[in-house]
Write a protein that binds this DNA or RNA. Sequence first.
DNA 1: CTATCGACTGGCCGACCGGTCAATATGTCG
DNA 2: CGACATATTGACCGGTCGGCCAGTCGATAG
Lengths: 202, 202
Amino acid sequence: MESTSTRDPDLTRARILDAALALFVAHGVAAVSMRQIAEGSGVTKSLIHHHFGTKEALWGAVKAHAFSRYAEEQREALEARQTPDALLLETSVLRYFRFLQQRPEVVRLLAWIHLEADEGCSEMDAELVRLGAARIHEAQQAGLLRDDVNPTHVVTLFVHACNQWFTAKAHHSGWPGIGDDQAYLEDFLRIFMAGLVPPDPR
Amino acid sequence: MESTSTRDPDLTRARILDAALALFVAHGVAAVSMRQIAEGSGVTKSLIHHHFGTKEALWGAVKAHAFSRYAEEQREALEARQTPDALLLETSVLRYFRFLQQRPEVVRLLAWIHLEADEGCSEMDAELVRLGAARIHEAQQAGLLRDDVNPTHVVTLFVHACNQWFTAKAHHSGWPGIGDDQAYLEDFLRIFMAGLVPPDPR
DNA sequence: CTATCGACTGGCCGACCGGTCAATATGTCG
DNA sequence: CGACATATTGACCGGTCGGCCAGTCGATAG
């Protein structure tokens, strides 16, 4: 049954993971102390060591927890296809863009993972990419998309275009003539979709 | 005249900046100690404080030094236009891609700066973006590129596509079906350039 | 009731942190 | 040759770090 407020190790672990994720993502692993995480999660520093061992192990658990949840959300959205094939790619880009727009912590988590060159995390979204690439391959064979480009690169390209937009947002917000999220998304989609139509056979 | 091996404050500053850049870029500012920088540059820790003050000031000097050198290189290459207008954009993308390919430390430096949300650094490449956007605007008015997209977004898009490719390389190298640098670049250029041709007026 | 196991606590440790400071070495100028 | 500015050094400071450990608390099983 549901436990009372005290002595709930699962809830404790969850609270530690949440606080650690927030702090790690905001300031970086090296800049966050175990004492800060303890304070942020309302538990003792020793208890964190009891549940997760070392700080590095905690970071590993945080990554696995947050990343797998994100990957699951994305897969569910991707597998529930109800749009016609011709618009599937465009709506996928749009959904991914909105997803990152509403979850800035995912963007920063990815950025930290990239800087660590953690190849282990790539397994978690490899399945997503494979799924998306398969959809694009289908559309290519149906003549809806040009077939002289690697489907995986198509997925990679739009993921990159969305990720980097939010990653570097503070930086390029000072660039002259740049627009807001919506304006960038629309221009990207114009170029991206027009660049993928099959060439006129004539 | 040229000084001997001892007592060359300029050389000392340069050595400290080089060592600090390498360490900061590799491990992040918070994870690098002044003692490590001292060891890496062959000087005393106190001497670093003497020349640069605090650790944060050193990081600022490192950013300014590396970033301005990078921006200068890019501007020189951009201002020496000798290619015909029709190919300028494609060669610009190619040059920028090769530039990042040969300077992985620039890619990582940018990634760290983005995570800091340091808006001050955006002034350094804002001029570059303005210059590139102006070239694209010229090409639009000459009818070489579609004119219903923001020129700044065109620059932003290809910068993002190149940056994120190298930033996340270790991560997406595990994705199924992904190609190498050259294959990605070619596919990106196909989509990008085809997406920018003016629509058939008929 | 008692034995037992895991959740949980406070205190402690050695190592290391960024930064300071007085003292010294070295080059330059009068 | 001094006098002076500054590059350079090593010792040292208070504070914080991650991790450890002995021990208490609380639920559950026998």
